[in-house]
Amino acid sequence: MVTRGFFGKGNDDLDKKRLPPGQYLENRFPVLSAEPTPDINLLDWKLSFSYNNEIMAEIDWNSLNKIKSTELTKDIHCVTRWTKFDMNWRGVSVQNIIKSLDLEVPSDWVMIGASTGYTTNLPTEDLLREFTLIAYEYEKKPITPEHGGPIRLLVPHLYFWKSAKWVSSISFIDEDKPGFWENYGYHMYGDPWKEQRYS
């Protein structure tokens, strides 16, 4: 079925292989959050790792800043259908944090938490991928509060709601559970290339 009179902007010179199905190219950086932006001081920020309600370790900005950081440029895909090419981030990979804290990974799933109460679930395997970062810079500048600053999670290979803003906790869980948006009908995993938007 064709919509009469609609031609689209064409996107002809666009590298279509870079756009997952159903996405369109966005040049700006839209804000997606369900709640008000919190005001977090970098020096008060902490990230905890826990299992069975017990804290295994905590890390603050000073210690995070001492771990080798990663800079990466990735295309980011949002479930609301925008894709933004070549977004530049800096942060420390969760992999490296776990190594530096000398933690043993106790389970196959995690629930990510933010200081706003936001949650989202991930397989531990995805948490430990090379490019899953605890990020603090976007385009070489501190991440602004509305985009999850001072520190957010970045899981570039999944839809962007998995990249929890204002990340504050990583809880290992024995069985997969839905987080905030997953409870409201979003997909449990969220692979943009398989178009896993809604469950």
Binding site: V2, T3, F6, F7, G8, G10, N11
Partner: peptide, 8 residues
Amino acid sequence: LTAQNDYK
């Protein structure tokens, strides 16, 4: 919206 060339 679908264009004639199937662009959506």
